[in-house]
Design a protein around this nucleic acid. Structure first.
Lengths: 332, 332
DNA sequence: TCATGTAATGGTATCGATAACATCACTCGC
DNA sequence: GCGAGTGATGTTATCGATACCATTACATGA
């Protein structure tokens, strides 16, 4: 195709297209947003003009006018861990398919003020919000309430979510892992977890029958930190122990160090991780872990949000619990 | 198709604040954007009114008026790999500190049409763009040129980048790894890489002296895929081999399988990965790898963009090569 | 034949902010 | 003592789209 001298994107606006196609701007807008309300012939002409001029609609202007930004803001602690990268990725994909863009805001692990972050993203008037966790400060709750924006919270559960929720109970995960170990005949338990709120909750559930040892690493927790922490912890573990790690990365660190120390797995030390990262499947021995489908969580969160935004929220419950399960591999 | 209800997101607008503070809307705008041009007393009153009313400025309206969105769009293949998650994370952080939000668009590995994606994000009139790689289709280049938007390309290099570039030469990485192996006395080489364009380039550089074996896995490449591929490949490796993997994940898969097969590392098989993921440091044996500071790359990209956006582009070269280095650990 | 419904399209008034210019009150310096 | 300069604030006109309602041209049924 002969590249006609195309004016800068910013220069071509809807009125230019309208003039070129011999219609009113409103008709151009209809061709783009509600094509079924325009006669095929007119739509054809308008589309030809759009192509010829290289028109790229200005969603900022459209958003101001329609009061819908077609944008969702996602606030997660980090995407440097698969724990959050996967749901964010699948959420972004799924929202994209529904015509929404996702703006990413990273909160870190609690050091930043969440309310400030929420205020900042609300300034862009997102049509919806994805938040991590289910505990909001009063300030944050107030902001969200007055903004009247659909909210999905993921990765946790609460009796009274802010709005919609797609998550699960971390304490219950801990209890289930403990029950699993007990069923295997274990009596001495240990926990090695990151310092974040949900990892702590898993530890709490796990520890209900008592703990022979426990250690914490700074969230999100690295392999090297886990190795160091386990080395220190191992001295206290005199007999056969079942260890629950708050993430697969930490579990891998424990296993790596255990091998270096000559501790046999799973005979002397049984290990269960959390997250079912690719590493757990790929490592040898393959790591027993708690599978939580982060990808599904992202997709489900997107579905809830899209349903709400389309006005057909009735079919969906506000609170969806995603299942988790223990994937038994070689370390237990 | 229920028409979406358009509830006033936040009823409070700049005129309300202005009325409450007894000033003109423009003065409120100044308090928020150029506080140094407002007298302290007035600013105080305005801020009090903002707090009292819970005013959250509408950046959509502001953006339309000022023609600056204070938003950057980032297009990366995926964030499910640390390769891209780290730079995206650090870029988002750094841009956030400069007052910009980042919108994330995921392109996958080539199957989607990049130009379509670029057109979609340009509709939001981002003040800048972060793109992965340095090869653009003619269509994409045309779009970017007419949009006159600052662009930073990362993760690759090119003689003529679209605009700014922060990356390095992947072929050179391959050559350097080959040279490193040669210096260690290796003569038989193998490559196991993902199918993406940059991994392929690294393989090309590595293969210049010839390859005893090579295999490709679908990008981005998983541990399990790497194990399978290596198992198939290993039959061809009759003598001492130096293997370059296109990512640390793949290297880890190779090492895991090698251990299972009783191949001694680094005596029979030396392995070098790419990326210096946390896994390489944490695993045992620790994996020799090519370190590329993805976090620094994100920060640097943000600095270039911010400098350009602030109008002080002079101090920065358009094309920054980030250094890489081989981190020697236990597998070579 | 005419009232009425319906599909296609146009005209006008915003949406909520900011740019650009105007205004006003002072302070200097000579 | 007065014009020029300066800092603080106000006024007006957009920014580029869409909502809302009006209008037109037909088709339809009584």
């Amino acid at each position: 195709m002969a590249s006609a001298p195309t004016p800068p994107v910013s220069a071509v606006k809807i009125t230019d297209v309208a003039a070129a196609a011999g219609v009113a701007p409103m008709t151009v807008s209809r061709v783009l947003n509600t094509p079924e309300r325009v006669s095929p012939g007119t739509a054809e002409r308008v589309r030809a003009a759009i192509d010829a001029l290289g028109y790229v609609p200005n969603l900022i202007a459209g958003g101001l006018s329609s009061r819908r930004s077609r944008m969702i803001a996602a606030i997660v602690p980090t995407i440097a861990s698969p724990m959050f990268a996967e749901p964010v990725q699948s959420f972004t994909d799924a929202m994209g398919r529904a015509g929404y863009h996702v703006m990413l805001a990273l909160s870190g692990y609690g050091e930043a003020d969440e309310a400030t972050l929420i205020r900042a993203v609300l300034a862009r008037r997102p049509d919806g919000l994805l938040l991590t966790g289910a505990r909001r400060s009063p300030e944050a709750s107030r902001l969200l309430a007055t903004a009247r924006v659909p909210v999905v919270e993921i990765w946790d559960t609460a009796e009274q979510p802010t709005d919609m929720l797609v998550g699960f109970d971390h304490e219950e995960v801990g209890r289930e892992v403990a029950a699993y170990f007990r069923a295997q005949g274990h009596t001495q338990f240990a926990f090695l977890g990151a310092s974040d709120i949900r990892a702590t909750a898993r530890g709490r559930g796990f520890a209900q029958g008592g703990l022979a040892a426990q250690a914490t690493v700074k969230a999100p927790g690295t392999i090297v930190e886990a190795r160091q922490a386990f080395r220190a912890m191992a001295r206290k573990l005199t007999s056969r122990t079942a260890l629950f790690a708050s993430s697969d990365l930490i579990a891998f660190g424990v296993l790596t160090e255990a091998r270096a120390m000559g501790i046999s797995v799973p005979d002397q030390l049984a290990v269960c991780g959390f997250g079912d990262f690719e590493l757990s499947r790929g490592a040898s021995p393959a790591i027993t872990t708690v599978h939580v489908d982060g990808i599904a969580m992202g997709v489900l969160a997107a579905e809830h949000l899209v349903a709400r935004l389309a006005g057909r929220a009735e079919g969906h419950a506000h609170r969806a619990l995603v299942p988790f399960r223990i994937v038994e591999r070689d370390t237990t």
